[in-house]
């Protein structure tokens, strides 16, 4: 699973996701991509599950790029612990995704395979996404 090698601070605020993506909204590597259409927090586990769904579907051909990185730690308190006594320990990592962000890119496979692979991967994600293609290559 993806996680930062080291961080400046161990714990982060929860934050809110406002606005639209400012960068990473166009395809940079592959011919097909998966674009977020709503904001959300995607965990490293969900990214890995989606990546596996794509790689399993396209089998030995093609290439996948992951365009988001889970760099925000999420902490939680253990069960049956009274409130107070500080913030809990970091449990997992999330990526904050804004609408418009390209999350995955894919190349080297036919368009139908790419579409199907992204449909399977989208089922692993907590936000709704859209299939996108390079400009001028739409059928």
């Amino acid at each position: 699973m993806l996680s930062p090698k080291r961080t400046k601070y161990r714990k982060a605020f929860k934050g809110r996701i406002h606005g639209l993506a400012k960068g990473g909204t166009a395809l940079n590597f592959g011919a097909y991509g998966m674009k977020a259409v709503e904001p959300g927090r995607v965990t490293a586990r969900q990214i890995e599950a989606a990546r596996r769904a794509i790689s399993r579907h396209i089998r030995r051909v093609g290439r996948v790029w992951i365009r988001i990185f889970p760099d925000v730690p999420v902490s939680s308190k253990p069960a049956e612990v009274r409130m107070g006594s500080g913030k809990g320990t970091p449990e997992f990592w999330i990526a904050r995704v804004k609408p418009g962000r390209i999350m995955f890119e894919l190349d080297g496979v036919p368009v139908d395979t790419a579409r199907e692979a992204f449909t399977l991967a989208a089922a692993k994600l907590p936000i709704s996404v859209r299939f996108v293609q390079r400009l001028g290559e739409e059928a």
């Binding site: 990546r51 596996r52 790689s55 396209i58 093609g62 290439r63």
Partner: peptide, 13 residues
């Protein structure tokens, strides 16, 4: 022309 990376990636995972 690259070797298929997906296969090695998946076996590693």
């Amino acid at each position: 022309i690259a070797a298929p990376t997906v296969k090695t990636d998946e076996t590693a995972a």
